[in-house]
Simulated assay, not measured.
Amino acid sequence: MLFDSHLHIVDRKRLAYPWLTDAGALNRDSLYEDYAREAKRLGIADTLHMEVDVAETDIERETDYVKSLSREPGSLLRGVIAACRPESTDFPAYLERVLADPFVKGFRRVLHVVQDDVSEGALFRENLKRLAGTRLTFDLCVLPHQISKAVALVDLNPDVSFILDHCGVPAVKDGLSESWSSGITEIARRPNVVVKISGVVAYADPDNWTPETLRPFVEHCIASFGWDRVIWGSDWPVCTLGGNISTWVAATHALMQGVSADERNRLYHLNAKRLWSL
């Protein structure tokens, strides 16, 4: 069974998504029921919703919306990774509200859509330290040239659990690069970082990739982090840029041929359940 740590739900009737205007094929509704129908057929038994960079005024409404979906019979939803703004003076009060809600499992602030100096700001870093000793994780979504910025955040917060999204967002269609490879090796030296095996199909040539295209990227991440610090995610609907969720699940199984059942289970669901105490 698979634990999907990275589902995006887009419902434009409920919430505002300013970035969708320039998102091409992703500028559409991507509803939970469409995901769940296929996910259940693929052996996905549990999922976490990943924030979708909604309008700032809708951040807490997004959590409430996903929570309402989780109450439906047979729902796969087990929690959310909520959006946040650590660069804001409002963050401490928001954190207190989140800590009172066990449905929220962690935070994400997408860093490749803002200036690099956002994550270097004193207030951002001070607020991130507030996660130490809490149950909340923090997802790092950065481009390869920004991995050094992510490393700096991790080094300042050794008691915070971080998750590097999408194998560090490699440009798969361009092939392996030294900057990505060395960045993965470096950030993996930090024991409080987990890598998410997700997203890579969206960065490949949509008309010309196979599991072997993805293999060097996936295997380098696993070799760098080890089997205890890898988790799996679909990145639906973004994964549909490279096929569909079924394509990515099939590619994952092909990439895991030859590994032990124990290693496969750690990637597929055991590590995620341990990370979020589920």
Rank of each mutant, 00 (worst) to 15 (best):
V154T: 07
L42G: 03
R215L: 04
L26A: 07
V160T: 14
T185R: 12
P73D: 10
D101P: 02
V154S: 11
N127A: 06
C141E: 12
L99H: 01
L26F: 05
E186W: 02
D205P: 05
F124E: 11
P92A: 11
P170W: 05
R37T: 13
M256T: 15
D90N: 13
Q257S: 13
F225M: 10
V114E: 15
S88I: 03
R85E: 14
P158D: 11
V154F: 05
N271I: 05
S148M: 08
G243V: 04
E96K: 15
K196W: 09
A188I: 02
H166K: 14
L111Y: 02
P144V: 01
D116E: 15
D90I: 01
V54I: 00
F217L: 00
E87L: 06
K67P: 01
A25L: 13
V113L: 14
A202D: 00
E72L: 11
F138H: 13
G199S: 08
H166G: 06
N157R: 09
D207A: 11
S70W: 07
V200Q: 04
F107L: 15
S75E: 12
S181R: 14
C239T: 13
S224E: 09
I59W: 14
D29V: 01
C84K: 10
L267G: 07
R71L: 13
F124D: 10
Y65A: 11
L143P: 00
R135W: 01
S119F: 02
R109Y: 13
P18R: 12
V249Q: 06
V193R: 14
A251P: 01
E120L: 13
V142Y: 08
I147Y: 04
W227G: 04
D53E: 14
H220Y: 04
D117F: 12
S179M: 10
R28Q: 08
S68H: 05
N271H: 06
L128P: 00
R28T: 07
G175Q: 07
A202L: 04
F217H: 03
D4I: 05
D101G: 02
G133P: 06
A82I: 01
F124C: 09
E219P: 02
P237G: 07
V114Y: 13
C239D: 03
C221G: 06
E51S: 09
E56N: 11
S198H: 08
H49K: 09
P86K: 14
A272V: 02
V118A: 14
I245D: 11
A152T: 08
H166T: 03
P211C: 07
V172F: 04
L76D: 03
F3D: 14
A202Q: 12
D159F: 05
T134C: 07
L214T: 03
H6S: 10
A254S: 15
G226M: 09
C221E: 09
K105M: 15
V160Y: 06
A16L: 09
W180M: 08
D207H: 09
A45K: 15
F124P: 02
I147N: 09
R14Q: 14
Y268I: 11
R130T: 07
V54M: 10
I184K: 11
E60R: 15
A39G: 01
M50Y: 03
N127V: 00
I81F: 00
D165T: 00
S5L: 11
A55E: 15
L77D: 10
